[in-house]
Design a protein around this nucleic acid. Structure first.
Lengths: 129, 129
DNA sequence: CTAAAGCCTATACTTAGTATAGAGTCAAGC
DNA sequence: GCTTGACTCTATACTAAGTATAGGCTTTAG
């Protein structure tokens, strides 16, 4: 199949598929005589894997590491586990940050009403304090 | 005071102060004869305001809008309120995404142990499914 | 045969800064 | 008076993960 079909099947944009190839997440695609990229089922699988990882907010670098690991089926998977744990830790921390931020924003939002003027705006007053 | 002192007092980097100026969040600084930026208390206040907004994850564009609003003390503050609400909504939604993501990652992390091989890695199996 | 749709590469743009190069300025010490 | 180090200046490149665009082929449908 060509890149457009692959894009449709995976929900990735054509540009991001090319981007993944350029960045070594997808191996270089075969080309037709007219230089069109040509994909098989394995590429579909690989791209689906990448999409799955991206949906978990993994970085390109992290995914690249996972892809590399998959090449060596008999190696230990300890670093894969370590990476997931580190990523989980990042996500947890970001959640904590955002929750705290949310409560500040809520307080701010409650400090004003639409009927005021800028000079009396409760939101701006909180921002200035 | 010069830019280094302002940076120290606010905890902003010198580069980001210049960045804020370039992008219209801070007004153009006065210059000394030798072209050094010269700041007074008002700049300190303004930069502190910007930092406060950034700590709430507001974008440069949003802060620019707030700064512009502050110029007109007698206007209604409705759009300030609307922006905070929209931002709060964004944050809430992002929290929801991350919480769901966290539970997926936790399940993944629980699906494997360090003692396995890549081909039997529970994490990779979940990622492939 | 022609026109539309699809594909190709290369380049610029996005966010909110950070990092660097190369040059000018200022204060202190000798 | 000179040098050295700290500070500042501008301009440029870089980050992440794509998206958007221009200009040029190729394929497909009518």
């Amino acid at each position: 199949m060509k890149i457009g079909e692959l894009a449709n099947k995976t929900g990735c944009s054509i540009q991001s598929i090319r981007f993944y190839e350029r960045n070594g997440l997808l191996k270089q695609a075969e080309r037709t005589q007219s230089n069109y990229r040509q994909y098989g089922k394995d590429a579909l699988k690989q791209l689906t894997f990448i999409k799955q990882c991206r949906s978990l907010d993994m970085s390109i670098a992290e995914i690249k590491e996972l892809v590399a690991n998959k090449q060596n089926p008999n190696n230990s998977c300890a670093n894969v586990n370590a990476m997931i744990e580190a990523h989980l830790e990042d996500v947890s921390q970001r959640i904590n940050e955002l929750v705290s931020l949310k409560s500040t924003l809520t307080a701010m939002s409650n400090a004003c009403t639409n009927s005021r003027k800028i000079k009396n705006c409760g939101v701006l007053q909180k921002l200035d304090s």
